[in-house]
């Protein structure tokens, strides 16, 4: 959410944790959980979603600057925080959308409680460990030079936007906060919960798993295997897309989510 979008941020106090949340649009409820990577560059995607519904997009604590007396520090914390957010806003029939790291949070929410959800959409989601212990399912953001990470995240690296050092002060600070917060939540075990794959059978809403065909962070094979753990889920590739397929193709991905959400 860029500076422009952040003008629309509302602060919601959830049992002592202030969550800065972007709210836009009208219609069916869409809760969108961002990736923390390339933070801000998903603005176009959020606006596309808002064409189709009432979008609620929280900034994860540590990235947003709200006060937090609860010291939110794990994906487990985030999953309960956003379930509480849904309860507090009395949202029903929510289409829950999560990209990359946000997809991990969305999956953790869905295995805990699907009561307020009607659809789950995971975009290049992280969160499960599928391969052998010597195999790295999810590339190490923190052990990868920036240029290489850009190639993993974008099929067309030109869509990766400006180098960090060229960002404006506010955007650079927010990116640095996101980098730190993502490490706080996902450093070890690295970007996954070893128990999540044993729980995905609990997801009881129709689920769409979308994956960049050129995702260099977590491969499409990983995505397919992830989807196979969710009963009845659909798996679809986003063509010519890297790990951040929703940033690379915002209109197409949002439009596919819209058709999935309304096809009941």
């Amino acid at each position: 959410m860029t500076s422009a979008a952040s003008d629309g941020l509302t602060t919601i106090d959830i049992h002592g944790t202030e969550v800065q949340t972007f709210v836009a649009g009208a219609g069916p409820n869409i809760v969108y959980l961002h990736s923390a990577l390339w933070l801000g560059d998903d603005t176009a995607f959020v606006h596309e979603l808002a064409k189709h519904g009432h979008v609620i997009a929280p900034l994860h604590p540590g990235i947003g600057v709200g006060k937090d007396k609860n010291n939110i520090g794990s994906v487990d914390d985030l999953a309960y925080l956003y379930l509480d957010l849904i309860d507090q806003l009395k949202l029903k029939d929510v289409t829950l959308v999560g990209a990359s790291f946000g997809g991990w949070i969305a999956a953790e929410m869905a295995v805990r409680n699907c009561n307020a959800l009607s659809r789950l959409v995971l975009i290049d989601a992280l969160g499960v460990k599928l391969g052998a212990r010597e195999h790295r399912d999810i590339q190490d953001f923190y052990g990868t030079p920036d240029a290489e990470l850009t190639r993993m995240c974008f099929a067309d690296p030109a869509k990766g936007g400006a180098e960090l050092r060229l960002l404006g002060d506010d955007d650079l600070r927010r990116r640095l906060r996101a980098r730190e917060a993502l490490a706080r939540y996902g450093w070890q075990p690295y970007m996954h919960n070893p128990r999540l794959k044993l729980r995905l059978h609990r997801v009881s809403v129709p689920t769409l798993v979308m994956w960049g065909d050129k995702d260099g962070v977590a491969s499409p094979d990983y995505g397919k295997a992830y989807a196979n753990l969710i009963p009845g889920s659909q798996f679809e590739l986003v063509i010519n897309a890297g790990h951040l397929s929703h940033i690379e193709h915002p209109a197409a991905v949002a439009s596919r989510i819209q058709s999935f959400a309304h096809n009941r």
């Binding site: 960090l164 002060d169 650079l172 640095l176 906060r177 730190e180 706080r184």
Partner: peptide
């Protein structure tokens, strides 16, 4: 390079000053 500045090791302010 990636191992020189682990996230959170330096404060956001210090990381910001370093990048600038």
């Amino acid at each position: 390079d990636p191992f020189n500045k682990p996230p959170g090791y330096f404060s956001v302010d210090a990381a910001f000053r370093s990048m600038r």
